[in-house]
Simulated assay, not measured.
Amino acid sequence: MSDGLIAEKVKDLLESLCGDDSSRIQQDIEKLGDAEVDSIYFVEIAPVVAQHFGIMITVNHIDQHAKRSFNDFCRLIGNLVSERR
């Protein structure tokens, strides 16, 4: 699974389910190298992410590995997808 595909899916879900602006996320990544996202948004999209990618993602995973970092959340998903194989 490509990192770019994961990032695009996460941005789409954050915008459609949480109202976070995907263009803001992209601009922050371009300017700062990462984007800060309210961690509750990661918790809110976790069930959809899990279903879409065929993984199990818990609040504990998010707390330990992502906190508020968009890049870390996407990396977590990529790692869980790789472990599943």
Score class of each variant (00 low, 15 high):
F42N: 07
A35D: 02
S23L: 13
I55Y: 02
G78L: 06
A66S: 12
M56H: 09
E15L: 10
S82H: 05
D72W: 02
F73W: 02
L17C: 11
L5I: 14
K9F: 00
V37Y: 03
G19Q: 10
V49Q: 03
F42G: 09
P47W: 02
I29A: 05
F53K: 12
I55K: 04
E44D: 11
Q27K: 14
G33N: 09
S23D: 06
A50M: 03
V59H: 02
H52P: 13
S22L: 10
E83L: 04
R85Q: 05
G4W: 01
S69M: 05
L14W: 05
N60H: 04
A50Q: 05
S23P: 00
A7H: 08
D38G: 04
V81I: 08
V37W: 02
F70R: 10
S2R: 15
I62A: 04
K11I: 15
I29K: 12
S69E: 01
I40K: 06
D28C: 13
V48D: 00
M1Y: 12
L80S: 05
S22P: 09
G19K: 09
S39W: 00
L5T: 15
R68S: 07
I40Y: 03
V37R: 03
H52F: 13
D28E: 10
R85S: 07
M56A: 04
A46V: 10
D28Q: 14
H61S: 06
E36Q: 06
D3P: 15
G19S: 10
L13S: 12
L17I: 14
I45H: 01
A66D: 03
E36W: 12
D63A: 06
V81R: 04
M1G: 12
P47Q: 07
M1L: 11
K31N: 09
Q26S: 14
K9W: 00
S16L: 11
C74T: 12
D21M: 07
F53E: 09
G54R: 09
G78M: 08
I45G: 07
A66W: 06
G4A: 14
H61E: 06
L80F: 05
E30Q: 14
E15A: 10
N71D: 01
E36S: 10
E44P: 06
G4S: 15
M1K: 11
S82L: 02
A50F: 04
D3S: 15
S2A: 14
I77F: 00
L13T: 15
L5R: 15
G33I: 15
E83V: 05
I62F: 02
C74A: 03
A46G: 09
Q26M: 11
Q51K: 13
G78P: 08
S16G: 12
L32N: 11
N71Q: 08
N60V: 05
I40P: 02
C18F: 10
R84D: 10
R75Y: 00
T58I: 01
D72P: 12
T58K: 01
A7F: 00
R84W: 06
L76G: 01
H61N: 14
I55N: 07
F73T: 12
M56Y: 06
D20P: 03
R84G: 05
I55V: 06
Y41N: 04
R85D: 09
F73P: 14
E8I: 11
I25A: 00
A35R: 11
R24C: 02
P47V: 07
S22G: 02
D12A: 10
F73I: 08
